[in-house]
Design a protein around this nucleic acid. Sequence first.
RNA 1: CGGGGCGUGGUGUAACGGCUAACAUUCCUGAUUUGGGAUCAGGCGACUCCGGGUUCGAAUCCCGGCGCCCCGACCA
Length: 408
Amino acid sequence: MKQSQLFTKTRREAPSDEVSKNARLLIRAGFIHKEMAGVYTYLPLGFRVLKKIENIIREEMNALGAQEIFMTTLQDPAIWIASGRWDDKMVDNWFKTKLKNGNELGIANTHEEPLAKLLTNNVNSYKDLPLYVYQIQNKFRNELRAKSGIMRGREFLMKDLYSFSRTEEEHKEFYEKVAEAYKRIFERIGIGDKTYRTFASGGIFSKFSDEFQTLSEAGEDTIYIDEKKKIAINKEVYTDSALAELELDKNTLIEKKTIEVGNIFPLGVKYSEAEGLLYKDANGSNKPPIMGSYGIGLGRLMGAVAEVLSDDSGLVWPKSISPFKLHLIGLTDASEIYEKLKKKGFEVLYDDRDTSAGEKFADSDLIGIPYRIVISKRNISAGKVELIERATNKTEEISEDELIKKLS
RNA sequence: CGGGGCGUGGUGUAACGGCUAACAUUCCUGAUUUGGGAUCAGGCGACUCCGGGUUCGAAUCCCGGCGCCCCGACCA
């Protein structure tokens, strides 16, 4: 795409009403726009990143054999009353609204209940299980305090996967497969080396749940890492007995601040029972499936990447989720090579604007596309193009053919 | 929800209770320039968050809202 046609512009200065690095950079670079506290619009560049994250997650979910659906935002209170979670004393971050006739409605903050209820239409036999269903959909949570830019909002896009299994073993096996898939997701998104599977509080269904925590000073969590085992334990469950159970040695653990980028946990049969989701086992008796729940906040993940991988001059996107693969900087007319690269299938942002070189470089640093190609009279006459890697600043002058070969 | 801070052109800032609310940037015109946010000239753009009050006079002081940020609490 031609940058002259991109309707967003970069800003020289960060807005005064944002402190967090992710929001300051993403707003300056024109990726997001704040509508109100904890509520952000994704602009063309930001939306492209979000979609790439979404697709990576979707691929990994599909590889697990999960099926994608898209559930509603408006929810029937009856379904929630059945599980006891309609009451504001039980779930205090509900957004609720009313129909014209005065009847109350819920605005989705999660989907365990509606999905369990939905599946009563589809699951009858043990032969229908195990079943894995996920969606990528907006969640609304009436947080007392939104904070940290796009990392803790009141409206946010979330991937939520739910598993329905027949036995504890079957559940556990899938649970571990999801943990592996999550590892792959964070690796593909470029923060794998900074992300730890972390034991956290398990609630009523099991002793522990598992969080995926990414190292960052901007994080809200504190974890204790065992570097050798590549696992960690959250401060909220950091007790001597928990350490003993997990076979972690207090003396080798390192304390770090982290961002929770994913969470998986067992639900037991609480919601299947509450919603009357039952299947006939081989003996013909009714049983509730054992459920598990697996979430990733996409906006938070994007914010975490912005926090963790940016530098002083701007964002630094990993190749896998960058809004474009190449940033073509035309210090002279570069439309010929732009067309050529496009034809080869590259995603190119072509800075064709009539502005100074300095401004183009500064904007390019800020936007953070992994590869920059500079086209100027100087290198055109030498038959070369200049290729610069955003993350390392490594620069080389190569021919067009070499460039295409290198990047393919 | 408790505590703290802050609300001034699109953005970032300034202005003693007193002149037509200033500067920078963005944007528009034109000239000049083209390898790190260039230069010059001209121009557009503000009910100073809202509502009351004090005062001859309020962006400035007082009261009440609302909004935003931070700390804490909360976060199956």
